[in-house]
């Protein structure tokens, strides 16, 4: 098995006695797109900083390309921090060249590749403009270019979509896919699940500094029971008809125009077809039947709620 390009091994970190990250372990394999998810304040940025060696963990170890992070391994990494900023008085291209050179590029190569990336992002005409004259979205794209101009093997993006409009979010998604297509490993943090659902091979979910899920998107979706929304006549009682097929069945709202809505969560192993068949066989008068698609957002809310409840109980 190949060495992970990024790994945290049982790392913990506390600030002023308050734990930010607790005994966290996960690894990112080469060529994958990994989403590092969690609510605000879950400890995502702190974990990424420990992984890059910017912050020292109180306990545990971090590894980049199989070794403890140092500035020779960091040259192989492109990092977009959550708190973003560039020298406002610098020219756009000069800023990209500066960060490229810090990562070990020659001035000439950084200039050539920087120009090409600016063109690719539709920013060719602002190459010689000062950063302070750019819009927020433009400046953010320049910063992304500055973090990937040296063609890193691993790109870590901390909340890369925040502050971008929907068009630019779509463009960034395309870039991430393009980088991954070229074999670049991507690790990005976000609390917007739609991006993770569209992009990730794998997700790591963090809540209150603890890992609460680590696996593929489909595995994550499996953690939620499948659900069906249906509507019956007011005299029908589907509860008895569906006994054994459902985990729960609850009325959704009050009876209106002689009809009742129901939310049905299926039992493990049952699917929507079984429910529909049972309703037909037991002559439940159905007026609507809609199997629900599961989203990562629901998984996220479900797992975080579950973890919060566990925390309260313990």
């Amino acid at each position: 098995m190949s060495t992970p390009v990024f790994a945290l091994n049982n790392v913990s970190k506390a600030f002023s006695g308050k734990p930010a990250v607790r005994d966290l372990s996960f690894a990112v394999n080469a060529g994958s797109i990994t989403g590092f998810l969690g609510p605000n304040g879950a400890g995502k940025s702190t974990s990424l900083r420990m992984g890059l060696g910017i912050l020292a963990p109180d306990s545990g170890t971090a590894e980049l390309f199989g070794t403890p992070p140092d500035f020779s391994t960091l040259d192989r990494v492109g990092f977009l921090p959550e708190e973003r900023g560039l020298y406002r008085k610098m020219n756009t291209l000069a800023a990209i060249i500066f960060f490229g050179r810090l990562k070990g590029m020659s001035a000439g190569q950084a200039k050539k590749d920087g120009k090409a990336l600016l063109e690719q992002f539709g920013l060719g005409d602002v190459a010689n403009k000062k950063i302070k004259t750019l819009s927020k979205g433009m400046a953010q794209k320049v910063q992304i270019i500055a973090s990937i101009v040296h063609k890193p093997e691993l790109v870590i993006l901390d909340e890369p979509f925040s502050g971008l409009d929907p068009v630019n979010q779509r463009a960034l998604e395309a870039l991430i896919k393009e980088l991954a297509g070229r074999g670049t490993t991507i690790l990005f943090s976000t609390h917007v699940m739609e991006h993770a659902e569209r992009l990730c091979d794998r997700i790591v979910l963090l809540a209150a500094g603890r890992k609460i899920f680590d696996g593929s998107v489909s595995d994550a979706l499996q953690t939620l029971p499948r659900a069906v929304n249906m509507q019956t006549g007011s005299d029908a009682d589907p509860c008895t008809a569906l006994n054994g097929l459902v985990q729960s069945i609850v009325p959704d709202g009050v009876i209106k125009d002689g009809r009742q809505n129901w939310r049905v969560e299926l039992a493990a192993g049952a699917d929507a077809q079984d429910v529909l068949r049972a309703c037909v066989e037991k002559s439940v008068s159905l007026t609507a039947f809609e199997p629900q698609k599961r989203h990562l957002h629901d998984v996220f809310v479900h797992l975080v709620d579950e973890d919060t409840q566990k925390g309260k109980q313990s």
Binding site: L74, P81, R84, L86, L102
Partner: peptide
Amino acid sequence: IEEKSGKVLDSLLSTAP
């Protein structure tokens, strides 16, 4: 102060000790 308030320090920390 300019670098800190402009969040440039955050970018620099991952590129230089």
